[in-house]
Design a protein around this nucleic acid. Structure first.
Length: 416
RNA sequence: CGGGACGUGGCGUAGCUUGGUAGCGCGUUUGGCUGGGGGCCAAAAGGUCGCAGGUUCAAAUCCUGUCGUCCCGACCA
């Protein structure tokens, strides 16, 4: 891919609205462009990363028996009246009317819709379990959007809903999804911590959150220094120095960004919305539900926060928009261009390659490359005529001059 | 929603106190020089100073209102 065609509007200075590191960097690296408070355009580089996150999610969920579908963002009031949430949700719910003055909202979550979608079908235990998910834009009219993609009014989310005939089956799936999430975040290169949480407004009886530890996080986590105990402070009430309820160790607190959560919903929606099935005993019972979310745009932001400095970024292997960044210091004379293009073509057979084909000075290209954060940079300079290129590994900051003949071998050994 | 701050070419900003031709850096265009860490010289384009009203001979500047954006707090599957 030629950089000149990709639309990567890098900036020397961050817009003054950007306050936290990841937000500044995302704006400077040409990843996002703010449209209004808490609403962003994801530019091509960010979009590529988002697609990579989505791919990981799809693989891990599909592998465990979940099915992807797509539900409407535009949701009629009737369903929200059924669950009772039209009145309960408050101003965070984006409400609107159609031309016939009928009430709608833009979905902040999809319990109502998914329950409506399956309730006629799930009439027997034989149809259970079922696990349905979607990746979609969600809307919440937040009182205060914050820190770029951290808390938006419009954001990309994966939401999954499971349906079960009994508690044991829900427990089994909950555990399986917990493992899926652990794997999803591991593959995304994010260090997360699982913390117990309150089940909040949505109702239910057990919940865990996946937290990326970070200074800019909005949640405070209480965790034990001696055992694995960790809980959202909102829920645990434990503060710095308190005694761990599990092992008696010392509690510490830290800030975290919630990138995912899993909930045992129970029968809150199936009861109110009449999603009943006939059990093995021949009784009509409300189906037992679980719901599981991942904030995809927030995960993107958390990744940048975790993998960046003030003016450079290094994408984790599975998220990176490209594998190799080829940076010819000189991309002017025809013979050279042809040679570089040939190299890129051969590399593109095995790798996703970004070629900085712009007629810019070396310094400009290098600064942009640092911002863009492709893990491996190949500089094509004076020694190219002697069959040599400079290879930078951003993961360990190791720079070396390579013979072109050794390039394939080197790349192979990096396991890109 | 309470508190605070800020709206001036694409980005960052000066000017506002004390009203009088809107300036600078970066970016953009053209030409030349350059060519391994955001270059240099020259020329040029680009701005309803958020919007509305008011005061005044005259408003980016003063007054009123309004909209927007950010930060702190409260809030949050």
């Amino acid at each position: 891919m030629k950089q000149s065609l990709l639309f990567v509007p890098t900036l020397k200075e961050a817009p003054k609205d950007a306050e936290v590191k990841s937000h500044k960097l995302m704006a400077r690296a040409g990843l996002i462009k703010q449209t209004s408070a808490g609403v962003y355009t994801y530019l091509p580089l960010a979009h590529r990363v988002i697609r990579n996150i989505e791919t990981i999610i799809r693989e891990e969920l599909d592998k465990r028996g979940c099915s992807e579908m797509l539900m409407p963002a535009l949701q009629p009031r009737d369903l929200w009246d059924e669950s009772g949430r039209w009145d309960l949700y408050g101003p965070e719910l984006m409400r609107l009317k159609d031309r016939k003055e009928r009430d709608f909202c833009l979905g902040p979550t999809h319990e109502e819709i998914v329950t409506h979608a399956v309730r006629d079908y799930i009439n027997s235990y034989k149809k259970l379990p079922l696990a349905l998910y979607q990746i979609q834009t969600k809307f919440r009219d937040e009182m205060r959007p914050r820190f770029g993609l951290m808390r938006g009014r419009e954001f990309i989310m994966k939401d999954l809903y499971t349906f079960h005939e009994n508690q044991e089956d829900l427990d089994r799936w909950y555990q399986s999804m917990k493992e899926a999430y652990t794997e999803i975040f591991r593959r995304s290169g994010l260090e997360t911590r699982i913390v117990s949480s309150d089940t909040g407004q949505i109702g239910g009886d057990e919940a865990d959150e996946f937290m990326v530890m970070s200074e800019v996080g909005e949640d405070t986590i209480s965790y034990c220094m001696s055992c694995s105990y960790a809980a959202n402070q909102e829920f645990s009430g434990l503060s710095d120095g308190d005694v761990c309820p599990k092992c008696g160790g010392t509690i510490r607190t830290a800030k975290g960004i919630e990138v995912g959560n899993i909930f045992k919903l129970g029968t809150k929606y199936s009861e109110s919305m009449n999603a009943l099935f006939t059990s093995r005993e021949g009784k009509r019972e409300p189906v037992i539900m679980g719901c599981y979310g991942i904030g995809i745009s927030r995960t993107l932001m958390a990744s940048v926060e975790q993998h960046s400095t003030e003016d450079a970024l290094v994408w984790p292997k599975e998220l990176t928009p490209f594998d190799l960044h080829v940076v010819p210091v000189n991309y002017r004379d025809d013979a050279l261009i042809e040679k570089v293009d040939g190299l890129v073509r051969s590399l593109e057979k095995d790798y996703r390659v970004l070629l900085d084909d712009r007629d810019e000075r070396a310094g400009v290209k290098f600064k942009d490359a640092d911002l863009i954060g492709v893990p491996y940079r190949m500089v094509i300079g004076k020694d190219f005529s002697n069959g040599k290129i400079e290879f930078l590994n951003r993961y360990n900051d190791h720079k070396e001059v390579l013979d072109l003949e050794d390039l394939a071998e080197t790349l192979k050994s990096l396991n890109i």
